[in-house]
């Protein structure tokens, strides 16, 4: 297992470089002058040139690329144009809030989505199955800012059950949890919908496998057959999807943070956008690349835990 983790970690490094390269190419390939975007078209040529130099975008493309990759790999993400503080510092300060949100919504999504998907599969083509399928399709059709606003309107503004403002005191666990409830539901709903659908189809597939029949032929009670024999196999595709949607989750957390006015990466992005803090944006881009590679790594490790065939390969 340790070897497997080590191998995966090593393999993740080239992936990170590759991801950074793709992002770099995309950003540079599309025409446009960041300095102009930051300063606006009223800016003097001198100011533009100065900013280009500060951002390092006056250098040749290859040098820019080299700088970008080295900086990213050494953890030096530059300094904010506005506050002058290192990007990494600003990110680390708010990261716990975003992680709280992402992880809690993932937990919610798995805790509800897996049982619902199993249930739907067992009741295939009966009422429960149809209801779950339609509801989950609605669930994943909600952009999170819309579902967030709807939840906010009902539970915070109308019933006043939850606070409107999401800024919480990290040291106060009760407060931290309390303010996490609505954002978690918002973000979790999409997760629940996706995981339900994947679990359902994976279960349907697995339930018709020969080894499930073997287990029944051994006299294993139906509940154990489902849990031990079917579900463990069905979780393999579920892990893939959870990994994929963890990325989407990170993206959606931006919207959730805006709606619930929570601190976090999303708020940092939006602030940087409003302040036209290009250096900050570029640093955040690297952070997101990093998060995505980490997500993929975690997905791979989860495979190793569930599927014994993976470690061999």
């Amino acid at each position: 297992m340790i070897w497997y983790v080590a191998k995966r970690l090593l393999a993740a490094m080239p992936t990170l470089v590759a991801v950074l390269t793709v992002v770099f190419v995309i950003v540079r390939i599309i025409p446009g002058d960041p300095a102009l975007t930051v300063l606006g078209d009223q800016a003097t040529p001198q100011a533009l040139a100065a900013l280009r130099e500060k951002l390092g975008i006056d250098k040749p493309l290859l040098a820019q690329y080299f700088d970008f990759i080295t900086a990213a790999l050494t953890g030096d993400l530059g300094r904010s144009l506005v506050s002058g503080r290192p990007v990494i510092q600003e990110v680390v300060a708010v990261l716990p809030h975003t992680l709280d949100l992402t992880i809690s919504s993932l937990v919610l999504g798995t805790a509800l989505g897996v049982p619902l998907g199993v249930w739907a599969a067992l009741r295939r083509n009966r009422l429960a199955d149809y209801v779950i399928r339609i509801v989950s399709l609605v669930g994943l059709s909600f952009p999170v800012f819309v579902s967030g606003i709807f939840l906010l309107m009902v539970f915070s503004l109308h019933y006043r059950l939850f606070p409107v403002i999401g800024t919480s005191n990290l040291a106060d666990l009760g407060d931290r949890t309390w303010k996490l409830v609505l954002p978690t539901i918002t973000l979790g709903l999409v997760m629940v919908a996706y995981i339900t659908r994947v679990t359902r189809s994976a279960m349907l597939q697995v339930l018709s496998e020969d080894y499930v029949r073997t287990a029944r032929a051994k006299g294993v009670p139906a509940r154990l057959v489902i849990r031990r024999h079917a579900l463990r196999n069905a979780l393999i595709p579920v892990v893939t999807v959870v990994g994929l949607y963890l990325g989407i989750n990170i993206g959606n957390s931006v919207l959730t943070e805006i709606v619930f006015n929570r601190p976090g990466l999303g708020k940092v992005i939006v602030t940087a956008l409003n302040q036209r803090d290009y250096a900050m944006l570029q640093g955040l881009m690297v952070i997101y690349c990093f998060l995505i590679v980490v997500t993929n790594l975690l997905t791979d490790l989860a495979y190793g835990l569930i599927d014994p065939r993976v470690k061999q390969a």
């Binding site: 020969d210 080894y211 073997t214 287990a215």
Partner: peptide, 12 residues
């Protein structure tokens, strides 16, 4: 059963 390749559970 007939198919030894698919009749055993791959994750146990």
């Amino acid at each position: 059963f007939q198919e030894p390749m698919t009749s055993l559970n791959p994750v146990l």
